[in-house]
Computed example of a mutant assay.
Amino acid sequence: MKSLLLTLALVLTLAATSLAGVKGYEMNYMAGDTLLRGYLAVNEDLEGRRPGVLVVHEWWGLNAYARERARMLAELGYTALAVDMYGEGKTADHPREAGQFAMEVRQNLPLAQERFTAAMAMLQQHPSVNPDQLAAIGYCFGGSVVLEMARTGLDINGVAAFHASLATENPAQPGLVRAKVRVYNGADDPMVTADEIAAFKAEMQSAGADFRFINYPGATHSFTNPGADELGKKFDLPLAYHAEADASSWQDLQEFFAEIFR
Rank of each mutant, 00 (worst) to 15 (best):
S3W: 13
L6P: 02
T7E: 15
L8S: 05
T13Q: 13
L14S: 12
T17Q: 12
L19T: 14
A20W: 15
V22A: 00
Y25T: 14
Y25A: 11
Y25D: 12
N28K: 14
M30H: 11
A31N: 05
T34P: 02
L35A: 07
L40Y: 02
E44K: 03
D45S: 10
D45V: 05
E47D: 10
R50D: 01
P51Q: 05
L54G: 00
V55S: 00
L62E: 05
N63G: 10
A66M: 08
R67Y: 02
A70W: 01
M72N: 07
M72F: 07
E75G: 10
L76D: 11
D84R: 07
D84A: 01
E88P: 07
G89N: 08
G89Y: 04
K90T: 15
K90Y: 10
K90M: 15
K90S: 10
T91D: 02
D93Q: 14
D93N: 15
P95K: 09
P95E: 10
R96F: 14
R96Y: 12
E97Y: 08
A98D: 05
A98E: 08
G99C: 12
F101S: 02
M103G: 09
E104H: 12
V105E: 02
Q107Y: 11
L111P: 04
Q113M: 10
A118F: 04
M122H: 11
Q124M: 12
H126G: 00
V129K: 01
P131G: 00
P131Y: 04
D132L: 12
Q133Y: 03
Y139V: 04
C140Y: 00
T152S: 10
T152R: 05
L154A: 10
I156A: 04
I156E: 01
A160C: 08
S165G: 14
T168W: 01
E169W: 04
P171F: 05
A172S: 12
Q173F: 08
V177Y: 04
A179Q: 01
R182M: 05
V183C: 01
V183Q: 03
P190N: 01
P190I: 09
V192L: 06
A194M: 15
A199G: 09
K201Y: 07
K201E: 11
A202V: 13
A202E: 15
R212N: 14
R212Y: 07
S222T: 12
E230L: 05
K234E: 12
K234P: 07
A240I: 10
Y241E: 05
Y241Q: 02
E244W: 03
D246C: 15
Q251E: 13
D252C: 06
E259F: 06
F261I: 01
